[in-house]
Write a protein that binds this DNA or RNA. Structure first.
Lengths: 315, 315
DNA sequence: CGCGCCTATGTTAGCGCTTACATGTCATCG
DNA sequence: CGATGACATGTAAGCGCTAACATAGGCGCG
């Protein structure tokens, strides 16, 4: 019909006809059917994103960047929460593929072999985000969690706090947590110190868990002088627990976190932490996807966004 | 084809044929095309949800409930962030309608007339969530923000804290914030106290803003004895500011919040606040949508989930 | 033995678009 | 004045499914 031209290249239609068609569309309350368009054009205009948790506002910042980058190309985001499970991620990827998404964003670099196989077979652009790896499925934008954790742990050691403990999220299917721990251990080895199991705690990712973990850590190792936490939520919990137990921070125990969440700057003492450009990670991932879908060449398949240490009062 | 039967009612196909078909599907790596299915069946299996902010973990809890309720029926959620703008909500609703979503969830009860018109015309199930109103578009599950704020303000007054100030989020296109303020004012009037503009602050919804607002409020009205904040993030900021200024809580100033975010129980003193069943709101909304889509009658079109006051040390 | 009936399989049209090509109309120019 | 092209409009096929109906064998039954 002429109708589609009115909607897509209005200038190619005579003004009179255009007006007539537009009037009818308005009167009937026409809404283009993107499902039918998707079937015919083999372009759904949907981008799938797998994130660990819907309720994680840090990852939501990445998604905000993604959304912003995509919306300029008329693409819509579909979110799926994997609950930190690679198996669940596979289920989501399969669902996305069934919905014929035009591209996929994955959080982290740990995936099931089947996930990787499906993605490669599908041929759509894939961006992994939030960490680095030598062998991404397709494209990647992130930072080195190992290096960041190493820098922070070294900072604690150089400031004279030793022994340094570690409280981190469970590393199961979570490469960011895994690599942060690896960075912590690497820093210890680099300064010829032992990696002691008693100094390392694994816990869930919230304030209360951080508080409990710190209590347990101090009980096990009363000589601990600093704690590096793999997330600010944990660090804030640890900090509150220190306050309750009357430990001076950083006099008795220094505390460092990761992520620079808004509250990190507000707690007393303000939290020393690591900042990463979350919004930009999403933005860049979105830009790479748009480039690829538009047939433009992508300059760098692997983008290292880096990180920044934010030294405040707590360590 | 027999293929579709193998996928949908395998028992209606002879075992031998079934095996043969299944083998081919496996070998070719077949994935059903939900786009084509959507076109043919006029059921996309997608539910659209408009929320104000992706980065708000409170609303994410509602979405988690929604997702859980929907996934049992094989439905997928599409999220759109409106940034607290009814106009932006309209854009999102239009996009959802174009994608032929099977139902829509809206946060709050304020919408543009065009949004309401489009939704009514579309005929799909609509659930509004997070507040109450007499005249929902279709279905609704929420609680009375007015009543909750009234209860909390009355609690402050009865505890002998007066005058009571208010720090709230901007009420523009945000009926929850608007109604919380109304509840605050209603409680004042009920106890024959004046509603003073100098005691009321509008600010954005984060810790830092809460801190600034409290500072300003105390400057304007040094006699203020309590503050009711329309959100815990604001209350926590206010609390930190009090600590910095050396105000005893609740001795010099009592502080109350709204939402019971995780940190509310952890700050010192722990925050008195209001708790609402966020996950259940999402869950119920999802159940209502599933019922409607399955042709089952929905018992109650309006569900009041209620709220709960959590009295802690801060007020 | 032929009728109906059940189960297993095949057939058809069409969902609302896109893509590619076909046709119609008019002005321009040698 | 007919060929040429530029612009406006129309036509046809098909994307991968679903829904509804059609057909083909096998069985029991009067």
């Amino acid at each position: 019909m002429t109708v589609v031209r009115v909607l897509r290249d209005p200038h190619k239609v005579a003004a009179a006809t255009r007006e007539r068609v537009a009037a009818v569309l308005r009167d009937t309350g026409y809404t283009p059917d993107l499902v039918a368009r998707g079937l015919a054009s083999r372009r759904s205009g949907l981008i799938g994103a797998v994130i660990p948790l819907l309720t994680n506002s840090l990852i939501a910042e990445i998604m905000q960047g993604l959304t912003d980058a995509l919306s300029s190309s008329g693409l819509h985001l579909m979110l799926g929460a994997s609950g930190f499970s690679a198996a669940e991620e596979e289920v989501l990827v399969r669902a996305f593929l069934s919905r014929r998404v035009d591209a996929i964003y994955l959080t982290g670099v740990i995936h099931t072999p089947e996930t990787v196989r499906m993605l490669q077979r599908s041929g759509i652009p894939v961006v992994e985000g939030g960490n680095l790896t030598d062998a991404p499925i397709d494209m990647l934008v992130g930072y080195s969690n190992v290096a960041a954790a190493r820098v922070m742990t070294r900072h604690l050691l150089r400031s004279g706090y030793a022994p340094v403990g570690y409280i981190g999220a469970h590393p199961q299917d979570n490469d960011r947590a895994r690599d942060r721990r690896r960075g912590y251990e690497a820093a210890l080895r680099a300064s010829r110190r032992p990696v002691e199991a008693a100094l390392c705690m694994e816990t869930s990712l919230d304030i209360e868990a951080g508080a409990r973990a710190l209590g347990e850590l101090v009980r096990r190792r009363p000589d601990v002088r600093a704690v590096f936490c793999s997330a600010d939520a944990i660090a804030v919990g640890a900090l509150y627990e220190c306050q309750r137990q009357g430990f001076a921070i950083p006099g008795r125990i220094a505390i460092a976190g990761f992520d620079d969440i808004p509250i990190a700057a507000q707690v007393v003492p303000a939290l020393t932490t690591l900042r990463v450009p979350r919004y930009d990670i999403g933005r860049q991932a979105g830009a790479m996807i748009c480039d690829r879908l538009a047939g433009r060449p992508v300059r760098r398949r692997i983008v290292d966004t880096g990180f920044e240490m934010v030294a405040r009062a707590s360590a």
